[in-house]
């Protein structure tokens, strides 16, 4: 009887601890979100999106340049990263699925997902900033693309593997060549999944700071010319939050709020999409 009580107590304690752990996890999430909302909300004004920064000590100003710069850099990353990622994933799930090389690359891309992003920044600095001779927005886009590629490859491969083989075989039987089968049957079947993977990869790179520090750098003016150093929201947050001025801190919170809401929105959208598509 004594051991039974002991076991029951042990059971209660261990289970309570795990409930506590879950509560801690949720607590942090709400604490951080609440803080970002609390500090950022009052600085969300039309000026934030329509005006450029002013020097410390001047009144007003906003972060229009950083919003536009961030979008341009992300756009470049998408234009480079999505096709390479989708095609690469296609190879891994179709042509290369049984080859040693294919499996090797698949493993490598899993590892590459977690290569420290700051290391990618130093790499792009060495190949694109130093030789060109100045910081530029393109380099920032390329750095983000490099982070994006393995993420897109992984989800594309997974989603295409989920398309049943019988579908492909049916198409082969009609005499379609493999690339037609892939583009018209497999892609169609896996479209939602691939699209979600792309969404999540955008969410991932939109919040990256470290790879932009030495590539696209920063700019206090509005620019759409990516040959110049290009401002981004994340680097601006870094600069403003590290700085001493109170209005900088306010704007950093506001920018943090915008970027967090955008990323959470994309993440939730992606999750809902997957759920809706793969209900079974």
């Amino acid at each position: 009887m004594n051991t039974l009580t002991k076991r029951k107590i042990q059971n209660k304690v261990a289970l309570s601890l795990s409930v506590l752990a879950a509560a801690i996890g949720l607590f942090w999430l709400f604490f951080i979100l609440w803080d970002v909302f609390r500090h950022g909300l009052s600085f969300i004004t039309p000026d934030l999106f329509t005006k450029d920064p002013v020097p410390p000590g001047f009144e007003g100003g906003g972060l229009r340049n950083a919003f536009v710069g961030q979008m341009l850099i992300t756009l470049v990353a998408m234009v480079i990263g999505i096709p390479i990622g989708v095609l690469g994933g296609t190879f891994l799930s179709e042509y290369g699925r049984h080859s040693k090389l294919g499996r090797f690359i698949s493993t490598l891309s899993d590892i590459m997902v977690s290569v420290p992003s700051i290391v990618i920044g130093t790499f792009v600095y060495a190949i694109m900033v130093k030789p060109i001779g100045h910081f530029n927005g393109w380099a920032g886009g390329v750095a983000l693309a490099i982070i994006m590629i393995p993420v897109v490859i992984r989800t594309t491969e997974d989603m295409m593997s989920l398309v049943p083989w019988s579908l492909r075989e049916a198409a082969f039987a009609l005499g379609a060549p493999y690339y037609k089968v892939i583009t018209q049957v497999v892609y169609r079947g896996a479209a939602t999944g691939i699209f979600t993977g792309i969404l999540l990869s955008i969410a991932r790179v939109a919040g990256e700071t470290a790879p932009l520090l030495f590539t696209s750098f920063n700019n206090s003016f509005f620019t759409t010319n990516l040959n110049d150093s290009t401002p981004s929201l994340t680097v601006t947050i870094f600069q403003y939050a590290m700085g001493p001025y109170d209005d900088w801190h306010g704007m950093a919170w506001a920018a943090a709020l915008v970027i967090t809401v955008a990323i959470l929105f994309i993440t939730i959208a992606g999750r809902l999409l997957i759920k809706w598509r793969y209900r079974s």
């Binding site: 341009l72 756009l75 470049v76 998408m78 234009v79 100045h134 910081f135 700019n219 003016f221 620019t223 759409t224 010319n225 990516l226 040959n227 110049d228 150093s229």
Partner: peptide
């Protein structure tokens, strides 16, 4: 259309001293 936007935006050069 993404490609189009990206290229068209990057062609508008400005005068900037760094």
């Amino acid at each position: 259309s993404l490609v189009f936007i990206a290229t068209s935006l990057s062609l508008t050069a400005g005068d900037m001293i760094n």
